[in-house]
Simulated assay, not measured.
Amino acid sequence: MSEPIFLVGPMGAGKSTIGKLLAAQLGLPFADSDKVLEDRTGADIPWIFDVEGEAGFRRRESEVLGDLCNGVAQVIATGGGIVLKAENRELLKQGGFIVYLRASLDQLVERTSKNSNRPLLQVADPRAKLAEILEQREAYYAEVADLVCDTDNCTPKQAAQLVADRLAEQSAT
């Protein structure tokens, strides 16, 4: 593929982990929009949320996405909320091929339960918050997706292979 491949989906879907494996498999560079944002600001995402709130974080996230939509063939893991802004959805659609990594609520809860670096889940009931996030964003993920891959019951390596196989099928048609 000669254009960027954007991975979208909720936190816990495996965008960063699968993205690294997929990039290696395809021989492409890998970028994680959250990591790019942290490197630029010199601060981690929980700190940005604390100081600037979600609105400040989303503004910075949009700037990073704009820079990553540069036409360079690479695999890019996006933040789970990148699809909330209409202008981000348009940037994604114009900027490359979009893969929605879909996972069930049970899988998302399991995968995010051991990571305290997720500001939106620092609540009394993370499962309910994840359900709310899915309800709010699922239609946006589907709207932008060129390809949907379910990651439930897959190891990251299996999921990366599934995406690579589906991308090869897409390219062949």
Rank of each mutant, 00 (worst) to 15 (best):
I82G: 01
R60M: 02
E54R: 02
R127T: 07
V75T: 13
L21P: 12
T112S: 15
L92I: 14
S2P: 13
K15P: 13
D34V: 04
L162G: 14
M1R: 15
D32N: 11
P156C: 10
Y141R: 09
L28G: 10
L167M: 03
E138K: 00
Q94M: 10
Q94P: 13
A24L: 02
G80H: 10
V163G: 05
S116Y: 09
N153K: 10
L120E: 07
V148G: 04
A86K: 13
K20T: 10
M1I: 15
P126S: 12
V8I: 14
A77S: 13
E3G: 10
D39G: 05
G27T: 05
V51S: 05
K15F: 08
F57T: 03
R166Q: 15
K93W: 00
A55H: 03
E132K: 14
C69T: 06
N70I: 06
A168P: 15
Q158W: 03
T155P: 00
V72E: 08
E38Y: 07
V64T: 08
N153V: 02
R59K: 09
A131I: 04
E61S: 04
V163S: 02
A23V: 09
L7Q: 09
R137N: 02
L101T: 00
Q122N: 12
G66R: 08
G96M: 10
